[in-house]
Structures are given as structure tokens and as C-alpha cells.
Design a protein around this nucleic acid. Sequence first.
DNA 1: AGCACGCCGACT
DNA 2: GTCGGCGTGCTC
Length: 677
Amino acid sequence: MPAEPDGLPSGAIASETAPGGEPGYARVVVDSRLPQLDRLFEYRVPPGMTGVEPGVRVRVPLRGDRMTAGWVVETADARAWEGEVADVEKVVSPVPVLQPEVWALARAVADRAAGGAADVLRVAIPGRQARVEKQWLARERSPLPALPALAESEAVLPRLVEDRRRVAIECAGGVAEVVDLSDAIDSGATNRTAWVGRWAIALAAIARQAVERGEQAIMVVPDHRDQRQLRIALSAAIGSERVVELDARQKNPERYRGFLRCIDGDPVAIIGPRSAVYAPAANLGLLAIWEDGDPLLSEPLAPWVHARDAALVRQSQSGCALVLAGHARSSDAERLVELGFLEHERLGAHRVRVLPSALTDDSRRVPAVAFRAAKEALATQPVLVQVARPGHAPGLRCGDCGVRARCTSCAGPLGRSARGAVPSCRLCGRLAAAWRCQSCHGTTLTEVGRGSTRIAEELGRAFPGVPVMVADGEHERLTVDAKPRLVVATRGAEPIADGGYGAVLLLDGDALLSREGLRVAEEAVRQWATARALAADGATVVLTGAGGTTVTAITGDTTVPFAKAELAERRSLRFPPAVRTASVVGHPDAVAEAIEVLGVLEHLDVLGPVPAPADVVKGSREGELERAIARFAYADGARVAGIARGRVLAAAARPRKPGAPPRLRIRLDDPEPFDGL
DNA sequence: AGCACGCCGACT
DNA sequence: GTCGGCGTGCTC
């Protein structure tokens, strides 16, 4: 058996209460951000109070009569705490929203990330909706209808769930038509069809393996666009009654309704964004992460855990099957493959041809080969044009002296959102109506670069009579029909075309690769692979402005060698994911102390400390704080997290001015410091 | 966090 | 004598 990716501590919920009768004491995790309060507190269950059970929400006094929200983790007849014990004030709701598995997961994830369990629970458990809860408590459990007939295309990765396999899947692209039953209940419509990525159909077939065994499947997707495709594919594969959505975009009641359905324990597929990895599934057969390389899977709240890491912890606790899938292999997944922890799998085959094309000169924005491919395809099919930036002109310069035009209030770059529009700041959005150059006082502006709308205009002129559509953050489009048209989309905003695109033009490869950052090349390959996957079988994909290993990653039929090369390079440089990192930010004294204590570990090195950028910790002044980065081996993860937690705890006890930033903040595996490398 | 407890310098 | 400074400790 291969080694675990790293050491993972565990926790457990228990009930020491004799069956029948009310427990005497409850041990509660309180909903607090303070590291000092990240442990269980014992309370007495006052005589006459009922419903104090593991998992329920309670209100408890903490420090005098101030009330705090919390969750009961365990109950007991005998007290374990020697000191004074206060009474549980009330049971907020009878629903056991904190399932034992989720408590163990939150505890282990928090320990691994050197954070608080309550911070994880805040992500894991949605806010209570009293009305929804009432409906749920009064529900009638009706048996689920029989599974739909098995489609022949579903014969993929046999016994994945049954054998509890752990696999990294590289999915080839392409789209396919499925019967869309996903909202038939709402619309009453029947026999509608929708086009979804073949990846969604493959994942749905895998989820079916779990459901057939009477188990639950959790499938985490980066955004609602992927979630929609997966919902449609799952509805066809297992029936819409077995699809539970946990979408942060949903209204709160909807979200809570989905959450409660998980608790029922029915064999369903649970789909949702990064927080869905914590869904209260008690009989989990499968945990899948789609596009595990997508930065959206990184939780932007303390303790900043990536859904992939939470999934690894959860898999080790539950022993379920594990899938990390994507159109491109992430360097993180590749590390786990090379470690022997994940099997390598590949689904489908590319049915497109990819042509690299150098940028010959900037005035000919669309290279001849791309132009030809588009023209040919537009006879019968839509064509996708992927661009790097939205709007008209992403940058502006002074027409007289050439200095970059900047916002007068925040110094962000000025751009133009539409032809002839008033320049506006791309950071804060402020309009710069009467712009005047700071250095030469000139008033004319020249445009730098091309955004989606400008490229759309230019292509519209180049292909007269062809409709042009823009899809970006402002103009959201999920789908387009099969009619010939040009679809200009920013990366990540590409609509799915019925039948697939006849050609895909990946413009702006240079702009994508010119940024600095550890993951720039990997992220570019991922975004190209995502767009390539939207092409119809037999289509031509043209990649412009890229060079080196990124080109062969996308012209070949697998991205695995690219991921291997990326990982090998990171190993030689000691960069993540070859190593783990601890970003230590705070008062110079506290940072120095933390580094000193961490320094006892053998395979740990420290970069810095250097003055921290002011925006790293909000509320801090420039130069006030320092930052150091410690790099360490996965095997030392538990020890580093323990030390980090100890230092943060010690620093929290030190007095500081009200409103001042924390004296010490330690983030494990923070990607931010490496963005600029 | 936020508050009480406690031990040293200037005050009516 | 005692009022109040904020370093230290604690929250069941």
C-alpha cells in the first residue's frame, strides 16, 4: 500500500450518554475565530432541557453571561472539566447539522492548516433557515424512483467506487448531447436536450457507481458553469431526484435545503463549489474534484484550505474512492501520482488538431492560419475566440510622452471598457473624465492592447455578415446554438456551443504567459485545455503567441509530460507543490521567534524575513510588518502546523492596540507569495 | 476579543 | 494612604 500523502491527525465525535434520558453534560465547539477558544468547552444540561444531542446548534454562555453560538460535539453523563460549569442556554435547533464525520474532518483539516476548527465549520455548515428546517422536519420520506436505464457510454473506469480506487483522471475534450431532465420538475418540459462536456458525462457515470451501491458521491466543481453541466449530465445518469446542489450562488434557503437533504443519507450525488467538500455525507462512496488545478478551489477564508487538500483528508478518514480530474493534469495531482498515491487514468481521446502559430507582427492580430481555420469553420459552425482580457482597451498611455495612464485615486491602470468610452480605472472602477498626464500634462491617450469587445469589433469587420457575440464577466453566456457565429470570450467565460465549435482560436498566448508567477504556465495550459475541450470533433484549434513547453502541452494528446516537467522543475527549485510552505507575517519580533522555533526542523529552510507588502494584512501600515516563508517537507506537516499554532497562540496572548493587525499570522500553503515569482 | 486581576508610580 | 497605569491570564 502506498504511503499517505502526509500525516493526518484525526478527531472523533462520541456520545457517552446512556441510551434514553437526557445527558448531564455537553461538550461544545464554540463559533469563534480566536485561536485560544479552539477547543471543546463543557456545559451542564440544565434539568428539563431536551434535545441536547451531538451535532445540534446551541447557545452557550462564554465568559460571564455573554452568549456564543456553538455546536454540540459530544454528550456525557459525567463531567470531565474540574472547574466551574455553566449551563447550556438553549438548543437553537434540533437538527444535527454537525455530523460526526464532518467534525472529524473539520478538526483534521484545521490541524493540518494550523487553523481553528470553527473556521472550517463556518464554511462547512450554512446558516440556519428556520422555515426550510421546519419543512424538512415535517417531510415525508418517499422512496427514490428506480435508476434510469444505463447508457452504453457509461462503461468507463470499471469498479472505481467498488474497489475504492484513488485516481487522477485526464479527460479528453469534446461535447455531447444529453437529455436535459435537470429542471423538468420546475418547467414541466420533457424531451429537451442540452450539450455538455464529455467530462461531465464521465463524472456522472462514475457517480452512478456510488449511487448503485447505495452510497453518496460528492463532486466539487470550481464554478456554477461547470456545476450546470454536471447537474444536467447527472440528471440523465441517475435522475434529477438524486442530484443535490450545494451552491453558494443559490439563495440561502435553497442552499440549506440541499444541505439538509445530504443529512438524510439517501444515495445521491452532491454537487457544489469548494465548500461542498465538507457536505454532511454519512455514507460516502466517492469524492471527486473537477479541475483540481483551478484557483477557485482555494478557499479565500481562514484557514485558507484548498478543496483538494480537504478532499485528501476526507478520503483518508472515510476510505472512499477519490477522483482528481481535469482537462489538464495539475502539478499537484501529478505529485500524488508519482508518489503512488493516485493511479493515472485517461478518459477519451482528442479528436481535434492543434496548430501553434507564432505572432509574426502585432498589426496582424489574427494570424493567417487562424483566419483560415475560422473562415472554413464559419461556413457551418460557430467559432470560439479566447482572449486574455475583457473590455475594449486593457491599457492606456499618454499620447505625448508614453507614460502609462493611472488612476488618480488608487494608481491602478486606466483602460477603456468600450470604444470611445470615458477611461476608467481597472482596479477601482473610478472614471477619469478629464485625464491629464502626471508627468507631461498631455491630454491625449493611446490605447494599449486589445480586449474582448475590441477584438470582437475587428473580427466583425474581418468577417462581414457573421454575427459576433462577446462573453466575459459582464456579458455572461452559458450556451450558444449551432449557427455560424464568432464567440469572443475571456478565459473561463467560454459558452458551450451546441455540437461544439468548428474552430477555436486561442489568441493572447503572449499576454497570458508574460505575467510573472510560479503557476503562470500551468494555469495557461489549463485554460487552453479548457477551451480546446469545447471544440467539435474534427475541429481545428489555433494557439497564438505561446512558446516552449506550453505549446507541446497543448498540441500533443496529453498534458501529463508537461505536468511532470513542471513538477520536476519545482522540485529542483524547492517550490510548491514539491514542498509545503508556511507564510509567516507579523511583528518583526513575533516573526523572528516563529522562525527560530521552526528552525529546529531539519529539512526546513526560511526565505526572509523581508518587509511585508502593506496589502498582505489589511489594516497594517507599509513597513510595519515583516514576512518570511518557510519551506518544509510534507512529512513534517504535522510538526510545522503544531509549532505554527503554538506561535500564533502565544502571539494572540500578547496585548495590542484595538484595531491593530494580529501580531502574527501563519498561513500554510499560501500561493500568494509565489504569484510574483 | 474583551475583561478582570494584580502589582508599581503620582495624587488628593 | 489610594487612584489608575496596562502587562498577564482566562473564557466551560
